[in-house]
Design a protein around this nucleic acid. Structure first.
Ligand SMILES: [Mn+2]
Ligand SMILES: [Mn+2]
Ligand SMILES: [Zn+2]
Ligand SMILES: [Zn+2]
Lengths: 146, 146
DNA sequence: ATCGTTATTGCAACTAGTTGCAATAACGAT
DNA sequence: ATCGTTATTGCAACTAGTTGCAATAACGAT
């Protein structure tokens, strides 16, 4: 998480290159409020970098995710979504209405500790998605028709 | 989980149809030991049902997963994998070597209860994947070169 | 056993994401 | 400021998965 000075300088020191494509994609994610799909990101960034291709967007997002600068998720929509990595969190998603609730990573601390004790696996998934039903849909279902 | 008599009769009562395609795909998963990709499933089932298409395999797997008869997972390989739903479990996967450890669903009971208390979300994800490092890779890393 | 309704299939075209390869361009060293 | 090395890009072809539509075939009712 906490990295020396700038993440960008750190990347360069690793031998990675700070290309305009990478910087622009990261910038879009930094500005965005929520999760963005590769297509949404492409559509924004291609304005600034006309030659940009989707392949580069996909590759860059994979790269940034590996480096821990962005978080990925399957939220049950068709596409993956990406988000600038600020605070560690996970999501609860309603299978019925798609409503989403964020939960702090610390809620999983105990579980991950148990995993380590029980199996020796050091788990570090920082942006998981759990599916189920939101309070509203549960309430509607109890009274409602179906 | 526990459904009256046969899952198959139950499906039929819901108005779903027991097509040879569905039965064969489910049978392959029932026989299989572990997780299978749609391609692996297709290659097996197309032997019995020559006209079978990939589209039907994908649709059938989605259907069986929705009905709770099979479990899906993103295990970090390229493709999704499917498995006949016997017992509720989750997976720990090593980011380094791909080694996998199964954990019982009951380990997440407490977490899901907390989700319900804190947010009202009734989570029922039964086959999640958590990524991290396996004991071997942790050991090798501590002593090893990199 | 036959028939009508309609869920499901195959087909074909599509969206989503990956990959090998040659050309480009970061960036450290001069 | 110029140059060499090599990480990264764009391109094009590919794999993975989805979807609308007309034809088919499950299956309940007769
Ligand atoms: Mn998020
Ligand atoms: Mn499994
Ligand atoms: Zn809901
Ligand atoms: Zn490992």
């Amino acid at each position: 998480m906490a990295k020396r000075y700038s993440d960008l300088d750190w990347l360069r020191e690793q031998g990675y290159r700070l290309t305009p494509q990478r910087l622009a994609i990261l910038e879009v994610l930094k500005q965005a409020d929520g999760h963005l799909s590769p297509t949404e990101i492409f559509n924004q960034v291609v304005q600034e970098i006309p030659g940009l291709t989707e392949a580069t967007v996909y590759r860059t997002l994979n790269f940034l995710a590996e480096q821990g600068l962005v978080l990925v998720a399957h939220l049950g929509r068709g596409q993956l979504v990406y988000e600038f990595a600020e605070h560690d969190h996970h999501h609860l998603v309603c299978r019925n209405c798609g409503e989403m609730q964020e939960i702090d990573h610390r809620q999983l601390k105990q579980l991950y500790d148990n995993f380590l004790d029980d199996t020796g696996y050091q788990i570090n998934t920082i942006h998981a998605t759990f599916f189920g039903f939101c309070p509203e849909c549960i309430a509607n279902n109890r009274s409602g028709s179906k």
